[in-house]
């Protein structure tokens, strides 16, 4: 890869900079318990949770595994477990 002087790059590259490999834990969703309330989506500091078809979906490319979603879920539908795929 090319190294630009001063590490100056084009703007808006956050999506290209996949940070999912930083994590150790990943939130696993229990689809039975999840009712799609969206609290996890609101609390996710990296905006990598979306509610699709009234269920929580975590983006594995960007989730750093902080665990805030699991802590905040009122139905305890999220459990932090080692791993998780680096995928959308």
């Amino acid at each position: 890869m090319k190294l630009n002087i001063g590490c100056i790059t084009e703007a808006g590259l956050s999506k290209k900079n996949r940070t999912g490999y930083w994590r150790y834990f990943f939130p696993i969703v229990d689809k039975e318990k999840c009712n799609g309330c969206g609290i996890c989506e609101l609390f996710c500091p990296d905006s990598c949770i979306q509610i699709k078809d009234k269920k929580c979906v975590v983006n594995g490319y960007y989730c750093k595994g902080c665990g805030i979603c699991a802590r905040e879920c009122p139905r305890a539908a999220l459990t932090m477990q080692p791993g998780g795929e680096e995928a959308e």
Partner: peptide, 17 residues
């Protein structure tokens, strides 16, 4: 300058590495 940033051609300075 080698690099020049403006609203039409924005650049990132000090990105995470």
């Amino acid at each position: 300058p080698v690099y020049k940033t403006d609203p039409q051609n924005p650049l990132t300075y000090g990105s995470l590495t």
